[in-house]
């Protein structure tokens, strides 16, 4: 086990915490926080996949992009930009979901006067 595995363990721990909160907590706000933590865990994992120890920013200069050989050398020494692009998109989507959840929570509190999921029971069966 090397130190490079530590960030992955952090992602795993966050994921487990997030899932636990979503499943076990009864308070709507805590459930929303659980989803957010799970979101961060997956984003962190995705970002780690593209990380390279000591890698440079993935922006090639015109000289580096001149031929396929220099470009490949450059690619080997820089971090992978694709997961970063994916994470940006995923963060925006997560923000949308989060905003929707919070607005639903506000409306639920208006109607039921509580954030307790066990007391919000209109639907059954």
């Amino acid at each position: 086990m090397t130190l490079t595995a530590l960030p992955y363990l952090l992602a795993l721990a966050l994921m487990i915490i997030g899932l636990y909160v979503v499943v076990a907590k009864k308070n709507i706000i805590k459930i929303i926080l659980g989803v957010a933590i799970l979101d961060y865990a997956v984003n962190l994992f995705l970002l780690l996949l593209g990380y390279r120890d000591g890698g440079t920013a993935p922006i090639a200069s015109p000289q580096q992009a001149a031929s396929s050989d220099t470009l490949a050398t450059f690619a080997a020494g820089s971090v992978d930009p694709v997961p970063q692009a994916l994470v940006l998109t995923s963060i925006v989507i997560g923000l949308g979901c989060l905003a929707l959840m919070v607005s639903l929570a506000i409306r639920l509190h208006e109607k039921f006067g509580t954030f307790d999921m066990t007391r919000i029971r209109e639907l059954k069966g």
Partner: peptide, 30 residues
Amino acid sequence: ERAELEAAFKYVVLGSVSSLFVLLGIALIY
């Protein structure tokens, strides 16, 4: 209304969790 909001909240929580599993799967495949 009360029932709509409750149903939507359950749906959005479960839906978000399932979407994150999909994203995790995509990350592994990549």
